[in-house]
């Protein structure tokens, strides 16, 4: 899939809420935008935790606050309570709201279903580098500005 993703290799957060904040900080959102996106992602999580595989959570939403896909992968060796299960990999994405509807958002979810349900979940959990994890999930790895 021709979508760029950032990777936060060692997420230091101890809670789901902290993890979402830490991953949002990988983007250069302005303060209000970041706060409103945090609220949207947490709202979805409170409604139902997005555990999509043992050890993997997928916080996601569509928002009018972004004009392109925002994808960031977070890896935690120690694990993060989510809140009842522990996750080692977070696939966080925010899709833009477009006049054409949710087709591209659906396409991204379909892509993740296909990759994760065909052995990608286990491989992603076992990945050793940011490049490898992005490759397994079939995203284009983009280094964060802070990594360059």
């Amino acid at each position: 899939m021709n979508r760029q993703c950032l990777v936060k290799w060692e997420v230091s957060a101890d809670t789901r809420e902290e993890a979402i904040c830490e991953l949002l900080d990988e983007f250069s959102f302005r303060e209000t935008t970041r706060e409103l996106l945090r609220i949207a992602l947490e709202t979805r999580e409170v409604a139902q935790p997005t555990i999509v595989h043992e050890g993997i959570a997928m916080p996601h939403c569509r928002s009018i606050l972004v004009d392109d896909f925002m994808i960031v992968l977070g890896r935690s060796e120690q694990g993060i309570p989510w809140p009842d299960d522990e996750v080692n990999l977070i696939i966080l994405f925010i899709s833009p709201v477009k006049a054409t509807g949710p087709a591209e958002h659906l396409e991204l979810i379909k892509h993740l279903v296909k990759v994760l349900r065909s052995g990608g979940a286990e491989k992603a959990l076992a990945a050793k580098t940011p490049e490898e994890i992005a490759k397994i999930l079939k995203f284009d790895y983009k280094k964060a500005a802070s990594d360059e």
């Binding site: 709202t43 595989h53 939403c61 928002s63 009018i64 949710p102 379909k110």
Partner: peptide
Amino acid sequence: DLDVMISDLVNKDISKQEKKL
């Protein structure tokens, strides 16, 4: 944004894929 989330979950195609996950 909440209304968008709700409309996505009402969407049969998205709902089907979320169930697959």
